[in-house]
Amino acid sequence: MRKDKLVAALLQAIALSALAGLMIITVFIFKEGLPLIFRTGLKDFFFSADWEPGKGNFGIMSMIIGSLAVTLGAMLIGGTLGLGMAIVLTQFCPPKLASLIKPTIELLAGIPSVVYGFMGVVTLVPIIRNYLGGPGLSVLAASIVLGIMVLPTVTSISIDALKAVPRSYWEGSVALGATRWQTTHMLMLKAARSGIVAAIILGMGRALGETMAVIMVAGNALEVPGSVLDPVRTLTSNIALEMGYASGEHREALFATGVTLFAVIMIFNTIALSFARRTIRQGRGQ
């Protein structure tokens, strides 16, 4: 019995390691980045588009706008496709076929992001350049590539949310004479709403945090984009592009970019998690 208590204590200590990791990450990123934000001043850091590390100008506004633009674009594409797929797989697809399609979507999640970026460069970018104009490397290209990359996240979490809706709801609706589509969009989507919101927000977090694929297709220009065909630089690509040669204050500024990204993503995640928990409670009928 004493050995059992020892094991329990040991396991409990190990279980804290994820939390400890999270805390160390937070502390180190903020410690490296926060001082520069205050030295530069909140206004000059967040609301200036002058990023000239050589001259000591560290304004990240164009990158914030860039990140928001590609994330929104990605969610329009990935959110629609992903939710559509989740509906098909849970409501309209024979279960046998669904159990084949689901691992395939997981495979989509397994493909390295550099491969997505590369495919964007060799197929999508020339199409945009030739048919829509501009340099091809653009908000649009990044949105499409990211949209495909966030699909697995949106799909799998939406599937969980739709599956958590009690079967009796569905049966009740169909028994009242509603078609399966009416049942889906009037009942299932509403009942699973908070889980679907969680899926979309977590997908946004993925899109916002993606780095390598965006560097390859977004063009990385340090300007506020005027249209979807303009090139942009995101917060993530700014870090990855310049970290290799940055030192001193420049490096601090890249960490400060990281702090911004980190804070936004943590807010997203907390919102998404609270929505996800609500679904679970509903699913249990409480």
Partner: peptide, 21 residues
Amino acid sequence: FGADCLAGIPSIIYGLFGFVF
């Protein structure tokens, strides 16, 4: 909560952290 937050952190932040830590 800790594990879920870790799961949401983008890889570039892990990179920055791994680099300084």
